[in-house]
Amino acid sequence: MKVKINGKDAYYTSSGREIDKNQPTIVFVHGSGLTHVTWVLQTRYFAFHGYNTIAVDLPGHGESEGPALNTIEEMADWIADLINSLGINKTSYVGHSQGCLVGLEFAERHPDKLELLALINGSLSMKMNSELLELAINKDQKAVDLMMDWVHGPLGHKGGHPVPGLSHMGMGNQLVSSNNNGTLGVDFNACDQYTNGEAAASNIKHPTLCIIGKHDKMTPKKVGVELASKIKDSKSVILEESGHMSVLETASDTKNLLKDFFRAHRNAS
């Protein structure tokens, strides 16, 4: 589906379902150089179990018109504009990697629009390796290759995708390569420059779930734990077999954690 945000095409998928204003909504925001496809093993469940799901392509990614946004703050405002344009007043937010920084900033800038927050493979800041950043800015394929190495844990490297026949490395490579037109470099730079994570995390009052990958090399376990420690009402879970791609490497575990988190808070309310 496409809507206009600031005069540009903005793409999201709701898993083929109409948005029902009587249902709660969850926005899913992908990581650097990725797209909405990252979320397919979570979004389809929620879309068919009483939620509106909005899995976005950030500007310049996938089907959304460019250019890519330069800062995490701009991305957070873009998410707010998107849900406004869909007539949604409040949403829960699930972010992966860079999407976690956007989530922290969304909570900071638009707290009244947020219900529940889930941060997967996140951290308070994401200082980039300077050579990797330069490779991505120069649209060098080596940036994608290095990223595929670092984002996948032992499971992703060897294989055993939850969906029969799919390759973690192959899928990831294609998704990121499709955005290695400069967008990946802009994303990495936005992550590198973002400094408000700790302050934003400290201000969050919303119930928050942090999912951490034991084998994560991009946002290692200790920075995931640190992120959770700064958020008052947070719960953290470490996935033993996951690298940085918990949404795919341990897709069912991730989905079940989200399911339990949303169900518990929905029942409570």
Binding site: T35, G165, Q174
Partner: peptide, 9 residues
């Protein structure tokens, strides 16, 4: 839309 790089498969 849902499966992107694996749509054909």
């Amino acid at each position: 839309e849902e499966f992107g790089p694996a749509a054909f498969t």
